[in-house]
Write a protein that binds this DNA or RNA. Structure first.
Length: 1190
RNA sequence: GCCCGGAUGGCGGAAUCGGUAGACGCGCUGGUCUCAAACACCAGUGGAUUAACCUCCAUGCCGGUUCGACUCCGGCUCCGGGUACCA
């Protein structure tokens, strides 16, 4: 049998789609199994070969579990908000909604080609208002909640208010968690609380809310008017544009994840996650117990509070170091040091946190100030140093150089004392390094002398508390999560700022004060507004500040004349000539209006030139004629659907684009086709497929029934149609309609920052359970059925980000009773990253004497100014080749897109032709060319200030300029090293891709992508098909059954332990062996097809039907394994002498160890190695090995 | 810097609990088929030594535990990921 993968794959993908093979119901008798892939972000680069690795693995598990009788939930969707789309929007002016929609369509197309068993009816997109309504809803709940440390759970803020009203707040009974730099809320009485102004109450409660407006350190770039990620800062300037960046404290919406620190830490123990991930989370949470200690500043009332995990070493303190941003720096610095301190602060301020931590060079600056040691009363100098981070602990450390390596380096550098206070091993040299271990006895430490470290810590805290200079404290490295972004493309934060008359008149707010409030739940979602540019405003406010009428009136303050919504009224910005995330609904009236017709024609014309006004008129006439001659089936159906009988307006024989739909509900955008028998014809099938594709593109859903179905089970057909229409009615709501549905607008300013990328992905696993629910984020009943994820698959790069946030939100939703699980995923597996091979050219840039203008695409600078149609080239970039080893001036490595590079005779290179193609696609490379003799001679002259000799020149010229260096890196658009899986599908088929990606190696391991060896998996499929040439119904031989059952056993075991590469090997071995046995028995092949179906579903479906099965192989049952074929009655014992394998000997499996020893020693082979001597000892491990010790 | 991983033939990898290191696939070599090529099929393939058998060496490096170590322990080297606003 020949293996025509193209035909087979197309055929079965279509079959699955039409039969909704992978649709999953909530509930039923089967046990549930929820297998989820981490949310993909639909990047513009499309899916690369790394993405499917995890999806294939999870798909195999999903399919396998189905065969094992589980009800499997295996959904997919998109984490669609994010920076890249916004960046692209800034550069091109295209709306992120449009590009995101395109990217999603592209992803879907790519995903469909690989044959995944996702239930697409459950797809979610985080940028869809119907989805982010609930993200915002969760935010509102977080805002309205506080964390009660006594009950260890989130409670309504009302219970806290009640507490304040009855007993006030004494400052210590509740641990106040503020995150970032901790500060305490001052105690107040119940009476005082009642007298607080509204603003004061709001401020106090802000210290307790789980979503709160606080302050946080950020990388602020004034020129770009935005906050940058550490990633986007290089050497103190923005990566994009090279503008200065500084650390700045800014008001920020934050999430009090620190409240959950203990639970996030403790609950890790019950999870079936890899130890490394759990360890990473533990380290990230970074719970450390220690003490706060106050140091009084000499000749001042000011105090520095430090946090230390080693209060026992207090007598070893020789200096105190503050973070350069510390608020006291200005106040305590002596006039003498002002200049130096300011200079140092400015340098440190311009570095990102990561750069500062990675800095190996010790740096710091004395402030001229001293603190008084609380126990010895000695003066201790105060320094600032960039190794102290403002965001951790209190932003100040007491330095004990003898027992902390960073303090030690600092003390060495500044020549400060290093007194030892803990005993160390004798050979420890305190002039070379500190002794950091928490072992030893305290010395030189007054009342702590003689105690071991552990006891000394306790004793020191006691003493510190007794003297009132500090207290025992638990510190977490975990910081509260910044939740506001100065960006456009994210969920709007549903907060408005209520204005109230000022209670105290301060110079800044003379008449009014702002109180942040959350919107009423009934007004959600707050739709992302249209803006004219996706950039900050001129005054540096986030992009949403550009939205017209970005205001809100809460329900209780509304009057009838209040405008309905921010998107309402004459000021509304309407997006034209672009497609919305959800399609615009057409009006439901009889016949189409002129403008609706225009819309359809216009939409169709974008795809197909055949659609025009004339064609439309003809089509309408044809359709009208058709209505008079309906087929019997159509007639029957029409009687059931007409006149709004099923609650939806249906038309029959209605023209859409250049097709005529049998039945259509325009409002829900659903087309119902009733197919005659000729629809099984191949040409007709192809036409139908094309037609469905076009209609899908236009936003219509197409459902099909055969004449037979309609006539025989009309009730069933009608109810299926009704179901589809009911669910699509919701989906057809557009941006605008949702905006109207929410009565709002007017009185108060809305928040202008948006939520971060992780917001939508922190709860999506719940939405998949109940994706259409418009009453709540998930119904309790459904959530209780699916509980949590049984297998969660994703990259290890999410170890501390996403996985902590999703655990946090899950715990919160559990606390407020929305769900009954405490953790999102019971089992987690991290797939390794498929890395890309980056191509790097060595380039020397030279300024051109005159500016060259090259026609090309417009360029946009980082602040959004466009230079139209041409590129101004001020410099030339000469590619000098990897082998040109002379150090050259201003040489830099440049990434070249991998698709233009070639491999040959041991190295990667780019040809002239490749380079010119590259320039066409990527205008940033227009200034690149290969260096020639003249260039080399010029470079030489520049570098050595001497003429190049003819000999050297010809040597250098002979070197291949085209050679590139390769480097293994994360596959990413940024490194231009992305490989597309579709190319593989076209060449070898999806099943080969699936097998190959699994065959590459263990799932968890990182590996660079290479197609070497893909032919092996492809050949395997071909060989497998060949076994089915003539299938016989004869009873199989024992040997054949042995092959079968061993294969089944190994494959089942290996799937369970997620070892898919060995599964593929096992199948290969099976095929090789069956080939040798010339086996063509159905009884062997049929079970094998089932076992292979999770891996190569298209091929398996095809062979399954070839074997005469009518239903899909996905409905089969995984074959039972017969143990009797797994046992061997002889064992081939390897015999070792002194641990070295010498020979093997075949013995009965049930032979006793003593007999095995006897047999082995008696063997002729053994005599040779024994050389007549008696062995010292013989170790026999039954059924494993024999080791003779001489 | 800190945290988490990884390293086995020419290449991807196997060895699941400390028990025959190199399964399976690629590549390469030789052969069969063919006018020839492709496909397919058969055989070989870690290194050194050897005519062959034998023997020795080999799982990044150094050391340890053990009858026996790719696997466990201690110390390094190099590579990858994360490092809080990339997702």
């Amino acid at each position: 049998m020949e293996y025509n993968f193209n035909d087979i794959e197309r055929k079965w993908q279509k079959y699955w789609k039409e039969n909704q093979t992978y649709r999953t119901e909530n509930g039923g008798d089967k046990p549930k199994y929820y297998v989820l892939d981490m949310f993909p972000y639909p990047s513009g680069a499309g899916l690369h070969v790394g993405h499917p690795l995890g999806y294939i693995a999870s798909d195999i598990v999903a399919r396998y579990k189905r065969l094992k009788g589980y009800n499997v939930l295996h959904p997919m969707g998109y984490d669609a908000f994010g920076l890249p789309a916004e960046q692209y929007a800034i550069q091109t002016g295209r709306h992120p909604a449009d590009t995101t929609k395109e990217n999603i369509a592209r992803y879907r197309e790519q995903l469909d080609k690989i044959g995944f068993s996702f239930d697409w009816s459950r797809e979610v997109q985080t940028c869809d208002p119907k989805y982010y309504k609930w993200t915002q809803w969760i935010f509102v709940q977080l805002f309205k909640s506080w964390y009660n440390c006594k009950t260890q759970k989130a409670e309504s803020i009302d219970t806290l208010v009640a507490l304040f009203e009855s007993e006030g707040f004494n400052g210590t009974t509740h641990r106040v968690l503020t995150g970032d730099i901790e500060h305490d809320v001052k105690p107040f009485t119940a009476a005082a609380w009642k007298n607080f102004s509204e603003k004061e109450k709001s401020d106090v409660l802000m210290n307790f809310r789980l979503a709160y407006l606080g302050e946080a350190w950020v990388n602020w770039c004034p020129a770009l008017g935005t906050v940058l990620a550490n990633d986007e800062v290089k050497d103190g300037v923005s990566e994009r544009g090279g503008y200065p960046v500084e650390r700045k404290r800014m008001p920020q919406w934050s999430m009090r994840i620190t409240a959950y620190a203990d639970r996030l830490l403790n609950d890790l123990n019950g999870l079936d996650w890899s130890d490394s991930i759990k360890e990473a989370q533990r380290n990230w949470i970074g719970k450390s117990e220690g003490s706060s200690i106050e140091f009084r500043i000499a000749d001042s009332e000011l105090r520095i509070e430090v946090f230390t995990t080693r209060p026992d070493t207090i007598f070893g303190v020789t200096f105190v170091t503050l973070a350069p941003e510390h608020e006291l720096v200005d106040k305590i610095t002596n006039a003498e040091y002002k200049e130096a301190v300011t200079a140092y602060v400015n340098v440190a301020k311009n570095k990102s946190e990561r750069e500062r931590q990675a800095e190996k060079k010790v740096s710091g600056q004395f402030t001229g100030a001293y603190v008084i040691h609380p126990f010895t009363n000695e003066k201790v100098p105060v320094y600032i140093g960039e190794y102290v981070l403002a965001g951790y602990g209190t932003g100040a450390v007491m330095a004990v150089p003898a027992h902390d390596s960073r303090d030690f380096a600092f003390a060495k550098h500044f020549n400060l004392g290093i007194p030892q206070v803990v005993t160390a091993p004798e050979d420890h040299d305190f002039s070379k390094e500190s002794y950091d271990a928490k072992e030893g006895k305290l010395i030189n430490s007054d009342f702590l002398n003689g105690l071991n470290v552990k006891d000394a810590v306790r004793r020191a805290i006691d003493e510190i508390e007794k003297r009132g200079i500090g207290q025992g404290k638990v510190n977490f490295r975990l910081r509260d999560a910044a939740f506001g972004r100065q960006r456009y493309w994210g969920e709007p934060i549903p907060v408005y700022y209520k204005t109230v008359p000022s209670s105290t008149s301060t110079p800044l707010s003379l008449t009014t004060e702002l109180i942040p409030e959350v919107m009423d739940e009934s007004d959600l979602p707050l739709i992302l507004p249209e803006v004219d540019k996706f950039l900050p405003t001129e005054s540096g406010e986030p992009p949403l500040a550009r939205a017209k009428n970005w205001t809100y009136t809460p329900p209780n303050e509304r009057t009838n004349s209040t405008p309905a919504s921010p998107q309402d009224g004459g000021e509304e910005l309407k997006r034209t000539n672009s497609t919305h995330a959800s399609p615009q609904p057409l009006s439901g009236g009889e016949g189409l209006s002129e403008s609706e017709e225009d819309l359809i024609v216009e939409e169709a014309a974008r795809h197909y030139k055949t659609a025009n006004k004339d064609g439309w008129a003809k089509l309408k006439n044809m359709a009208r004629e058709n209505r008079t001659k309906l087929t019997p089936a159509e007639e029957v159906l029409w009687e059931r659907l007409r006149n709004n009988k099923i609650g939806h307006k249906i038309r029959r024989q209605h023209p859409i684009d250049f097709f005529i739909a049998d039945f259509i509900c325009i409002r829900a955008r659903v087309i119902i086709e009733v197919d005659g028998s000729y629809h099984s014809d191949a040409d007709q099938l192809a036409y139908d497929e094309h037609r469905t594709f076009v209609l899908n593109e236009m936003g219509f859903k197409v459902i099909r029934f055969t004449n037979e179905e309609v006539l025989k089970s009309t009730d069933d057909v009608v109810s299926r149609i009704t179901n589809v229409l009911d669910s699509e009615r919701e989906a057809a709501l557009s941006f605008g309609e949702l905006g109207e549905a929410r009565a709002a607008g007017g009185k108060y300013q809305l928040e202008t920052t948006t939520m971060p990328g992780w917001a939508g992905s922190s709860w999506y696993f719940l939405r998949y359970m109940d994706p259409q629910n418009d009453k709540e984020l998930v119904s309790k009943e459904v959530a209780d059925y699916w509980k949590n994820i049984d297998l969660y698959l994703g990259g290890a790069e999410h170890a501390t980000g996403h996985l902590l946030y999703v655990r946090f939100w899950t715990k919160f939703l559990y606390d407020i009773g929305k769900i009954s699980v405490n953790e999102p995923a019971q089992k987690l597996v991290n797939q390794g990253m498929i890395q890309g091979m980056s191509m790097i050219a060595r380039v020397v840039s030279r300024k051109l004497p005159t500016i060259r203008i090259i026609p090309g695409k417009p360029i946009v600078d980082p602040v959004g100014n466009t230079t139209p149609t041409s590129l101004l080239i001020e410099q030339e970039d000469l590619i000098i080749g990897e082998n040109f080893r002379q150090g050259l001036p201003v040489e830099r490595p440049i990434h070249i897109p991998v698709e233009f590079c070639e491999f040959g005779s041991g190295s990667y290179y780019i040809t002239e032709e490749g380079l010119s193609k590259l320039k066409e696609k990527y205008p940033q490379f227009v200034s690149f060319r290969f260096a020639n003799a003249e260039d080399i001679s010029n470079l030489w002259t520049d570098l050595f200030k001497a003429e190049i000799s003819q000999d050297v020149l010809s040597t250098l010229e002979a070197i291949d300029k085209r050679t590139l260096r390769s480097e293994v890196e994360k596959m990413s658009k940024r490194w231009l090293n992305v490989v597309n899986p579709e190319d593989i599908c076209d060449q070898y088929g999806a099943d080969t891709l699936r097998l190959y990606e699994m065959f590459l190696g263990p799932l968890e391991q990182h590996k660079p992508w290479s197609t070497n060896g893909i032919s092996g998996t492809h050949n395997f499929l071909k060989r497998f098909f060949r076994l089915f040439a003539e299938v016989s119904n004869d009873a199989p031989a024992e040997a054949e059954l042995k092959v079968l059952h061993r294969t089944l056993k190994k494959v089942a075991d290996d799937i369970e332990r997620m070892s898919f590469n060995t599964c593929v090997s096992t199948f290969m071995i099976a095929v090789n062996e069956l080939n040798d046995l010339k086996c063509n028995k159905r009884a062997v092949l049929e079970p094998l097809v089932i076992a292979l179906s999770p891996f190569a579903p298209h091929a398996a479906e095809e062979l399954w039907s070839v074997l005469g099965n009518k239903d899909s192989v996905t409905k089969a049952i995984f074959p039972a394994i017969d143990e009797k074929y797994l046992v061997d009655n002889t064992v081939n014992y390897p015999v070792q002498f002194n641990g070295k394998m010498r020979f093997t000997i075949a013995l009965a499996a049930d032979m006793k160890p003593a007999d095995v020893e006897k047999e082995v020693l008696a063997s002729a082979e053994a005599q040779k190695y024994l050389e007549g001597k008696a062995p010292k000892k013989v170790i026999v491990v039954p059924k494993k090995i024999v080791n003779v010790v001489m």
